[in-house]
């Protein structure tokens, strides 16, 4: 177990290093380099531009810049935002809670609804509800999240006035849980919809494989109640792949969150990313890329370990 853990940990660290190299490389793809945005300012002289390059360390060779930046990431000095000179780490950390609030809620909705639909579909294969859920899941996977969000805002905020059309809380009001939930419900449902589809499809497939196994017949034969058979035996065995799915779904979840945050003006990392793109704020962009990738790697690692702990059939080599 410890050996397995250490091996997965080592792989994750290698992956993280690669990810930082890719993120760093991407930022230097921009024509004219990161300082190009300053070159456009009126009255910018060549020697001023040179001073800016020097002050950002952009005049050094790329490998040197990379090592400095990566070392900074490790020690907590993530550089300063080009936009307002705040430390990048603060800029990003300010936004992480909002993104987690949104993504975790959406994921929870998706798991509860998706797993229920999937189990139902597997138990009543080819029934009308199963058929509708299958079609519904495929359509949900095909709807552009931003458009679905726009439609929800149009119907429920503009026309019916049931929900606010965006934001995380009423501006200027004191903190109140009801107010926060009121703002959270629509974006979380919109983001959750696509995930529900994936969860129900995978749960259904995974459960169908399990319900025909001998040990399920054995469980029924020894007189267990149907509820115990389904949830205690069948689902527990089908759950392994689902935990892996949760890990694999994280990049998808962040992609969806970026779009949802843009539509609902939700102050999370996704919107920070889109705003920073407009300002060509490279240090913030690199920071967000690395933080999201880190969360992805971390959740994959956690999912693998969880499966290994939960599922006794997995052997450690």
């Amino acid at each position: 177990m410890t050996a397995y853990f250490l091996r997965r940990l080592r792989q994750s660290v290698v992956l993280l290093i690669l990810v930082t190299i890719v993120a760093f490389g991407l930022m230097h793809l921009a024509p004219g380099g990161p300082e190009a945005v300053y070159a456009l300012s009126p009255g910018m002289r060549a020697e001023d531009l040179q001073r800016i390059r020097a002050s950002f360390g952009l005049d050094q060779p790329l490998p040197v810049q990379y090592v400095k930046w990566a070392a900074g990431m490790l020690t907590g000095d993530w550089g300063r935002s080009y936009r307002d000179s705040r430390p990048v780490r603060d800029v990003i950390f300010d936004r992480i809670p909002a993104t987690l609030e949104l993504t975790v809620t959406a994921l929870a909705i998706a798991i509860v609804v998706g797993v229920s639909l999937g189990v139902l579909g597997a138990l009543r294969q080819r029934s009308l509800p199963d058929y509708l859920a299958t079609i519904g899941a495929m359509v949900a996977l095909s709807v552009p999240t931003f458009w679905f969000g726009l439609m929800v805002i149009f119907v429920f905020a503009e026309r019916l006035g049931w929900i606010p059309s965006g934001g995380r809380e009423t501006l200027g009001a004191d903190f109140s849980l009801a107010d926060r939930l009121h703002h959270l419900i629509a974006p979380a449902l919109v983001l959750g919809l696509v995930l529900v589809a994936t969860w129900s499809r995978y749960t259904r497939a995974s459960m169908i494989e399990v319900v025909n196994q001998d040990y399920i017949r054995t469980a029924r034969a020894k007189g267990l109640g149907e509820r115990r058979v389904i949830w205690g035996h069948a689902f527990r065995n089908a759950a392994g792949p689902l935990v892996t799915l949760a890990g694999l779904q994280i990049p998808f979840l962040f992609s969806g969150a970026l779009v949802t945050e843009s539509v609902f003006t939700w102050p999370g990392m996704g919107r920070l990313f889109v705003d920073s793109l407009g300002y060509r704020d490279y240090p913030v962009l690199m920071g967000v890329l690395v933080v999201t990738a880190l969360l992805v790697i971390g959740s994959n690692l956690a999912a693998d370990l969880l499966v290994a702990v939960v599922d006794p059939r997995i052997r450690f080599r």
Partner: peptide, 24 residues
């Protein structure tokens, strides 16, 4: 395969936006 793994760590929309914004 390590390159594949590394690219899969980035949420697609983030990658798309960075590239589209920078490359034009």
């Amino acid at each position: 395969m390590r390159l594949t793994d590394a690219l899969l760590c980035f949420p697609t929309v983030f990658l798309l936006l960075v590239l589209a914004a920078f490359v034009g």
